[in-house]
Design a protein around this nucleic acid. Structure first.
Lengths: 233, 233
DNA sequence: TAAAATATTTAGATTAATCGAAATAATAAT
DNA sequence: ATTATTATTTCGATTAATCTAAATATTTTA
């Protein structure tokens, strides 16, 4: 079926269908995680589709030089494919920032919508949206947002619980997404981008005292400390 | 090809593909404009597709009870189809407001992107977006935004040039979209939602004096008066 | 009202994406 | 080094959307 998608703006990389983009994203993620060729079954699992479908699609992506593929040998993403994938990931993460910061979405409502929005074709839209959001570097899960060229400044992100007393950093994400946890963070004034400093740790239970934005100091439970991710800054 | 679209949230109206939605929108618009059955050729023209494709698609939409159709007799949108169409139109216009108000898009860059965004499936997204934008009633072209139920409060919108002296109203749109015209409007402080009053009209050339937001009064040329649309309020 | 012109539909093909079942290759186990 | 197991690919079909060319209707015009 034809997509009625607008024509490519800049045809440096050829236009891919939504589905092709999703495969590329999955291949990228799986090869980052597992390192070395992605096997058909894993991809089928990830894409919730039959292995036969994966074989078909991989063949087509290979013809488009988006992946390197040899029969029975699994698939590796190509340089072109990587750029494409990072492009989609960039758009996905930018939308997530928008949904959380501007529309007050909760963590667990994000992906369903972002997975649709990420495929919108409009460089202008993303430039403007990026600007509107203040050029965010991390999405609400603390994952880094690649730049237009697919450059991705990977920074360590560690739970407060694993950092030494004295460490200062920016909140770049949280683990989990329970509504009550997010409400708690909201109440104490912590969100993505908030600057925290670890001022003390109680040895007997792992509670931590933190200073928020250099203003008030509060004590957080070990569980909370485990679930707030900081990045040096 | 399958869409990988998310499953329908509320399955009161069945899930339609992007393309089906676009046809419905076109049928709705054409039947509003021309009144009475939409003929195949007109639809083919509107959809930039072959008449044969239109026949095929109409048959499918008819099976889904989205249109009433009899061979060689043209097609009428059904009640179900109308609701669907208005839904898409609502989403299109809400996005347009967002693009102009938040991302500073120009009038002529709007439709290309809005036509992609309008098909996103997420009631929550549109609730929140609507709220974020302050529940706008008109899009940047002055077209009314249907509510969630497809109710559409049609209001007259007339060029200033055609309204009598003394009339007050809200700017609900503009004709045309030249960059320089928009820049001019911006300079004099007129945008969607601005309240204007017509205080005088020069008979010899049709220039009009208007008061902007009850504050300053300026004179606009007949051309400008022709291209600013007011709605009573 | 019959012929000419126009509009619409059918028929047969094509492409993207999918699937299940059968065939084949690779890997693990004896 | 065979055999058994598992992974992967091929084959044949299906669905949505499209197309061109040919066949029918409808409408217009003489």
């Amino acid at each position: 079926m034809r997509y009625n998608q607008p024509l490519p703006i800049a045809t440096n990389t050829p236009m891919l269908s939504f589905v092709e983009e999703n495969y590329l994203k999955a291949i990228y993620h799986l090869s980052e995680a597992g390192k070395r060729p992605v096997n058909t079954n894993a991809l089928a699992e990830e894409m919730k589709t039959a292995p036969a479908s994966v074989s078909d699609m991989i063949k087509r992506l290979s013809e488009k030089r988006m992946v390197d593929y040899q029969k029975y040998r699994g698939v590796n993403i190509s340089e072109k494919g990587k750029i494409k994938a990072l492009h989609v990931i960039r758009q996905h993460r930018i939308w997530k920032v928008f949904l959380v910061e501007k529309l007050n979405f909760q963590w667990d409502q994000l992906d369903e919508v972002a997975e649709q929005l990420e495929h919108i074709k409009s460089p202008l839209l993303f430039q403007r949206l990026d600007e509107f959001l203040g050029f965010p570097k991390f999405d609400p899960h603390g994952d880094p947002i690649p730049d237009e060229n697919g450059q991705l400044i990977e920074k360590r992100k560690d739970p407060i619980a694993q950092l030494p007393v004295g460490t200062a950093g920016i909140v770049v994400g949280v683990n989990g997404s329970s509504a009550s946890f997010l409400k708690y963070l909201d109440k104490v004034g912590i969100s993505i981008g908030t600057r925290l400093q670890i001022v003390d740790r109680m040895e007997f239970d792992g509670s931590v005292d933190i200073t928020i934005d250099g203003k008030k100091t509060i004590t957080i439970s070990p569980t909370v400390a485990e679930n707030i991710l900081l990045s040096e800054a």
